[in-house]
């Protein structure tokens, strides 16, 4: 628990923009408090760079409490760094030792092109959602009462677990195939488990999978890496459920 300071070396992917070539750059950073979060460490690096009138490292981040899904970063060969069950913003420097060299790279996927440095474009996920990740219910003051369709607690809990996905893309980043099956599987599952999602179940899974394929994500080899690296612990069961849903839908 006692906080201390460490000195570290950083190897960071720098890339001017989407079209430019990038390369790993080395930085030395001293006096990093082990109580700092990983992103606070990057803040410190950027403060140092700005003071030296150099351009700071661009990286995505927002809520810094592990829920918005904006932070990414492939750290020392792993999505969201060495710990499991957390996002990069929840990673703390106490996970590293004095003198460590830390590699920081952007998510790598054809569907997630690099925008600048460590920032990638994940709008492919939005487009998958737009293809079918919803229940077509209009806003109205008169929707049926929330309690009129009971939902077994077990189903509701499972739907919630699937819906806990934060859309960060760690599954894609970590998958050796750059597959988005965990993301899409979680969304499909959420609706498949709830009565409200049944009506459009067929179109939903077909459309979302079609969009997923069009975006250029890879296929699922069931390595299970996504499940391990998912900061929200989304289970592979969701991929299986999507496979079932897809089979059901395709045979209709």
């Amino acid at each position: 628990m006692a906080s201390k300071s460490i000195n570290i070396n950083l190897k960071v992917w720098r890339q001017k923009n989407a079209k430019a070539n990038g390369a790993m750059e080395t930085y030395k950073l001293d006096d990093v408090s082990t109580d700092s979060s990983f992103l606070e460490m990057l803040d410190q690096l950027n403060e140092q760079l700005v003071t030296e009138k150099k351009e700071p490292v661009a990286f995505d981040h927002d809520c810094r409490e592990g829920i918005c899904g904006m932070c990414s970063l492939f750290i020392n060969g792993r999505a969201h760094g060495p710990e499991t069950g957390i996002t990069t913003c929840q990673l703390h420097m106490r996970s590293f030792k004095d003198g460590d060299t830390i590699y920081i790279e952007p998510w790598r996927s054809k569907a997630f092109p690099v925008v600048k440095d460590l920032v990638v474009d994940r709008s492919a996920f939005d487009r998958i959602q737009q293809a079918g990740g919803f229940v077509s219910v209009n806003t109205s003051g008169n929707t049926i009462d929330a309690n009129s369709i009971p939902v077994p607690k077990q189903d509701a809990d499972k739907a919630f677990e699937a819906a806990a996905c934060i859309g960060c893309g760690a599954c894609v980043a970590t998958c050796k195939n750059g597959s988005a099956m965990l993301f899409v599987g979680a969304k499909v599952s959420q609706y498949a488990l709830l009565p409200q999602g049944q009506v459009e179940a067929t179109d939903r899974v077909l459309n979302m999978v079609r969009q997923m394929d069009e975006e250029g994500f890879g296929n699922c080899t069931n390595t299970g890496a996504c499940e391990i690296e998912c900061p929200k612990g989304i289970s592979l069961e969701n991929i299986a459920r999507m496979n079932r849903e897809f089979l059901k839908a395709s045979s209709k």
Binding site: M24, R78, R108, K110, K176, N177, S179, G224
Partner: peptide
């Protein structure tokens, strides 16, 4: 093809 640019450092044994 889904990952045209590979990672510089990987640690796949950690998760698969």
């Amino acid at each position: 093809a889904a990952r045209p640019v590979r990672y510089v450092k990987t640690n796949p044994a950690a998760n698969s």
